[in-house]
């Protein structure tokens, strides 16, 4: 399969947040400011790529040979949870500046459904390891793009005179809806 198609589909056409609805919690939670959304996107990219590689290896060398595919959910979530812990400990020791930048976002990764979602989608699409890695990175970029666009929209929303009942989360959702509408225009790309 063509890598370019995987990348464009994951970033624009099937954007992980705006079309697949994965990772909505961090999308709303940290999108108040542009600076925090950059940190969050970095952490997502890091964990998503590693998690996809590890879960791919487990799926293809342990679960499938022993026909234990029904344990996929429980295995993947445990791998992701321990992986997040490990990344946190290693980063703290090896690269304190990187830990400073991503540290506070790492504990949120375990319950970020985008990570588990991409791992499962990779298996469902029967990607090989390389395609899986490209798919994970492209999805992380898509997540970052949506988050960045949305946080800059929200920074502007703060300055506007929004009707009282719609202030805060409701108007943010409507704005996200319009952003999703804009992304639907990419549908013809592939």
């Amino acid at each position: 399969m063509d890598y370019i198609i995987i990348i464009i589909t994951a970033i624009f056409v099937n954007n992980i947040v705006l079309a697949q609805f994965l990772g909505i919690c961090p999308f709303l939670g940290v999108s108040g400011k542009v600076s925090t959304s950059v940190g969050m996107s970095g952490a997502v990219m890091f964990v998503m790529t590693i998690a996809t590689i590890v879960t791919w290896l487990i799926q293809n060398y342990i679960l499938i040979p022993f026909s234990l595919e029904f344990l996929q959910t429980i295995t993947f979530i445990l791998i992701i949870a321990s992986l997040v812990q490990m990344v946190e400990i290693i980063l703290k020791k090896v690269s304190p500046p990187l830990y400073q930048a991503l540290g506070i976002y790492l504990p949120l990764m375990t319950t970020n459904c985008a990570i588990l979602g991409v791992a499962i989608l990779t298996m469902q699409s029967n990607y090989n390891l390389m395609e899986g890695v490209v798919f994970a990175i492209a999805n992380a970029i898509g997540f970052g793009l949506a988050l960045l666009l949305f946080s800059s929209i929200r920074e502007h929303l703060d300055l506007l005179d929004v009707p009282k009942g719609m202030r805060g989360v409701p108007i943010a959702f409507v704005a996200a809806g319009i952003l999703a509408l804009a992304f639907m225009g990419f549908a013809g790309l592939v």
Binding site: F21, A180, M184
Partner: peptide, 11 residues
């Protein structure tokens, strides 16, 4: 479609 989910939930 996807946008309707966001807009509907917002309202």
């Amino acid at each position: 479609l996807a946008p309707g989910a966001f807009i509907g939930l917002g309202y």
